[in-house]
Amino acid sequence: MKEGGTAAGAVHIEDIEPRVFKVLLRFMYTDSLPEMEEEDVMCQHLLVAADRYNLERLKLICEEKLCRHISVGTVWNILPLADQHHCDGLTKACFDFLGSLANLSAVVASDGFKHLCEDVAPLLMEELVVTLALPGSHA
């Protein structure tokens, strides 16, 4: 397909890095992902692209991989991403991680906690507090 008005038939796709789009195309044609450096970062980008292009299987794969990368340093990036893109399993995994007093204490002491509470997802923080205060309330 040739887009009118583009130089040399190039199609410009905004809001996605070329390396992420390359992996997205590979998945679409082969139903597989390559070995990736910084897998957690790439999966965050791929999850956004999979949601945008309605690639549910890729979205689920990314969600599963990101569940393995939840840590004190990543949970505040992964949790709002999971919420924004309606990844209930990933949101639950983040909440489960934060259900540990040691993990929660370490995260609260970090800069990411303040940023998330104030700027990113105050309603998500309210849900987290309710979930932690009432065990079993988040299925």
Score class of each variant (00 low, 15 high):
Val120Lys: 08
Gln44Gly: 15
Gln44His: 05
Arg26Tyr: 13
Arg19Met: 11
Trp76His: 12
Leu104Ile: 11
Leu58Glu: 06
Glu37Asp: 13
Gly99Thr: 05
Ala7Trp: 07
Thr91Ala: 09
Ala133Gly: 00
Phe21Tyr: 14
Cys67Gln: 14
Gln84Arg: 14
Asp40Ala: 01
Glu64Ala: 15
Cys62Pro: 02
Ala109Gly: 07
Asp15Val: 06
Glu126Ser: 10
Val129Arg: 06
Gly89Cys: 02
Asp83Arg: 02
Cys87Phe: 11
Arg68Gly: 03
His85Ser: 06
His86Pro: 00
Met42Pro: 00
Leu79Val: 10
Gly89Val: 01
Asn103Tyr: 11
Arg19Thr: 09
Ala50His: 10
Cys62Ala: 01
Met42Gly: 02
Gly136Leu: 01
Leu46Phe: 05
Arg52Gln: 13
Leu132Cys: 08
Asp111Asn: 14
Asp51Ile: 00
Gly5Ala: 11
Glu3Pro: 01
Leu123Cys: 08
Ile61Val: 15
Phe113Leu: 12
Leu60Phe: 11
Met42Arg: 02
Leu60His: 12
Val23Ala: 02
Gly4Ser: 14
Val120Met: 04
Asp31Arg: 14
Met42Lys: 01
Val120Arg: 06
Ala109Asn: 12
Met28Val: 15
Lys114Thr: 15
Leu132Met: 09
Gly112Asn: 09
Pro80Thr: 06
Ser110Tyr: 11
Leu33Gly: 01
Leu98Gln: 00
Gly99Glu: 04
Asp88Phe: 07
Glu64Phe: 07
Leu90Met: 07
Thr74His: 06
Leu58Thr: 05
Cys94Asp: 03
Phe95Ile: 15
Glu127Ser: 12
Ala10Ile: 14
Cys87Trp: 09
Leu25Cys: 13
Leu46Cys: 04
Lys65Asn: 14
Asp31Tyr: 08
